[in-house]
């Protein structure tokens, strides 16, 4: 079985936002130069999900696939150190500054070039843009069923079963392979790379493909092929002034807060 995990290399989404600056003119978010980059958290959990599947199905091959700047190679190395078998890097100026559509087109072309893929795993959404579009796009472009927000994944011969997160519980759904599965944080914490895997990772292959390697016309990908035009970008403003409830004891704080809420007609 061949699993491909799509991973995005992004500035640490849990870093204080003071580490980013917003350029309203260029309509870009720029991370401070020292800010560490990470595999987007849900994508890291998608790698974890793939590793768990391989534990249950010996002989499974896991490929990590990323589109980004040359530095995204670090994301692949992290995936390999977690235990993936090989990596594919799509780094090419022609692919830069795309949107969800061109990303899905480019990743789908890479998946086709990889050949017989049984399952594509993605994160539920990338933690920079917070969009959650690319996984569904890959499924539509490659004509595969898409099972979203996976909490757990099980494969049985030719079918995949996913327990997916709903707003009032979960449901178990099933589809034939090949399929796309998007992974949510409920799947659990990703493993840290072990020393042994990190050593082995250095010898694992990473191939690098350009748009033309994928048979993609530069006009249809990257900034040129994007369907989204960013009109504005800004930091939302906050105007709230907090009134701290001052009192000597927690009991008095409770009483005072209740009074203030009553005076403010909230209660």
């Amino acid at each position: 079985m061949h699993l491909v995990v799509c991973i995005k290399y992004i500035p640490d989404p849990e870093a204080a936002f003071s580490m980013f600056s917003i350029d309203e003119q260029a309509k870009k978010v720029t991370p401070a130069s020292g800010l560490k980059h990470v595999v987007s958290p849900f994508d890291e959990q998608a790698i974890e999900a793939a590793l768990r599947i391989r534990e249950a199905h010996v002989g499974t091959r896991i490929t990590v696939l990323t589109l980004g700047k040359e530095s995204s190679r670090n994301a692949l190395k992290h995936g390999l150190a977690m235990g993936a078998d090989d990596g594919v890097l799509l780094a090419d100026a022609a692919l830069d500054d795309g949107d969800a559509y061109t990303t899905a087109v480019s990743l789908s072309a890479a998946l086709k070039k990889l050949g017989a893929v049984d399952m594509v795993l993605t994160g539920r959404q990338a933690a920079d843009g917070d969009a959650g579009i690319v996984g569904a796009g890959i499924g539509e472009l490659l004509n595969m069923p898409v099972l979203t927000f996976a909490k757990s994944i099980a494969i049985n011969s030719n079918t995949v079963r996913v327990e997916r997160v709903l707003d009032d519980g979960t449901e178990i759904v099933e589809a034939d392979l090949p399929a796309v599965v998007t992974v949510s944080n409920e799947i659990g914490a990703p493993r840290a790379p072990s020393l042994r895997e990190t050593m082995r990772a250095a010898r694992k292959p990473i191939v690098s493909w350009t748009a033309s390697d994928l048979g993609l016309n530069a006009e249809n990908v990257g900034a040129a092929g994007s369907r989204a035009v960013r009109e504005r970008l800004l930091a939302p403003s906050k105007v709230i002034q907090c009134e701290f409830i001052d009192a000597a004891t927690p009991e008095q704080q409770g009483v005072r807060l209740a009074q203030r809420l009553r005076e403010a007609k909230v209660l």
């Binding site: 906050k238 709230i240 002034q241 907090c242 009134e243 701290f244 409830i245 927690p250 009991e251 008095q252 704080q253 409770g254 009483v255 807060l257 209740a258 009074q259 203030r260 809420l261 009553r262 403010a264 209660l267």
Partner: peptide
């Protein structure tokens, strides 16, 4: 606290029961 209109700095285990009792003691509107 940057998003809150009212803030209480304290241990919830003490503040929340006190708040609950105080709300129960409020005169009905």
């Amino acid at each position: 606290f940057r998003d809150a209109k009212f803030g209480v700095v304290g241990d919830y285990a003490k503040v929340v029961p006190a708040l609950t009792a105080a709300i129960r003691a409020l005169p009905t509107t």
